[in-house]
């Protein structure tokens, strides 16, 4: 613990980022602080000067036209790409030089815009793979089937069903993940990410391909997840009813730059945002 504190001190954000934290989270330290975050692909600057702070129990939205760099931000946060510039602090700890799996163990979990499930495995196994770092027995306990194996496998089985029940999917536990309908695959990805016990959950277009009633249900479930797990959720979404409905802080990206930050009302009346979106429509 002492070591953690020290680390925290030396790596605080040099320039305080503009806060979009909801009031109830203000007295606690933010879960995520990005400052001057940016990445270049060859000559193309895909993301630049990304300064965002997310509160402990905030539902934050990241929106913007196609190709704005939203998914790239998620890939930077989860270290699929190493940033060219800037720092990312998760719970005050710098994630510099970490691998994607290390960042997950630090507390960031995500879903993917183009679904990435373990298609040949069952729904339950997909969730159990999410529980990987919660289970603690060694390969040898597994091969020799020691009591530790049976105990933890039973716990993992129960936990997996419990997590699946968030989306009422426990009956699908023995189905092959790749054979599920599209919407169910998206929900399973969220469950798998939640299984890793994150403090920040990143959802990349969770409502894509869902019909309005599925989307409405998803909105309720996202809020329910935040309330029960008391975690921060950051989501990318093109469905404005979802974003404006549940996101407390919203950040708008265009050509890799943040053009606006604020609450739903502020964003909806922001002339720059309207221009960016209308410009795209014409």
């Amino acid at each position: 613990m002492a070591e953690k504190k020290q680390f925290q001190k030396g790596k605080m954000v040099p320039v305080p980022s503009v806060s979009i934290i909801p009031e109830r989270d203000l007295d606690k330290s933010p879960i995520l602080e990005c400052s001057h975050l940016g990445i270049d692909f060859g000559g193309l600057t895909a993301v630049n000067e990304f300064n965002v702070t997310v509160g402990r129990t905030e539902i934050a939205g990241l929106i913007g036209p196609n190709g704005a760099g939203k998914t790239t931000v998620f890939n930077l946060l989860t270290k699929v790409y190493q940033p060219t510039r800037g720092t990312i602090l998760l719970d005050g700890l710098d994630t510099h030089g970490k691998t994607p799996s290390q960042v997950n163990r630090m507390g960031i979990a995500r879903t993917f815009q183009n679904i990435r499930l373990f298609n040949n495995l069952t729904v339950e196994d997909n969730v159990k793979i999410g529980l990987h770092n919660q289970e603690k027995y060694s390969m040898f306990s597994g091969i020799l089937r020691l009591p530790k194996y049976w105990r933890q496998e039973k716990a993992a089985h129960e936990r997996a069903l419990e997590l699946l029940s968030i989306f009422d999917m426990q009956d699908l536990a023995n189905h092959q993940a790749g054979s599920l309908p599209y919407g169910a695959q998206r929900r399973l990805e969220i469950v798998r990410a939640l299984a890793t016990n994150p403090s920040l959950l990143l959802l990349d277009e969770p409502a894509a391909g869902m019909n309005p009633s599925e989307t409405a249900e998803l909105m309720e479930n996202i809020v329910k997840i935040r309330d029960t797990f008391q975690i921060a959720i950051m989501l990318i979404e093109h469905d404005m009813s979802l974003v404006m409905g549940i996101c407390e802080g919203i950040c708008v990206l265009n050509f890799g730059q943040i053009i606006a930050k604020g609450t739903a009302e502020e964003i909806q009346s922001n002339p720059t945002v309207i221009e960016a979106y209308l410009g795209k429509q014409q």
Partner: peptide
């Protein structure tokens, strides 16, 4: 098996 099915997703769950 997770690595076989989808390496990026496997890394994303730690």
């Amino acid at each position: 098996m997770a690595l076989r099915d989808n390496r990026i997703a496997a890394e994303s769950v730690g």
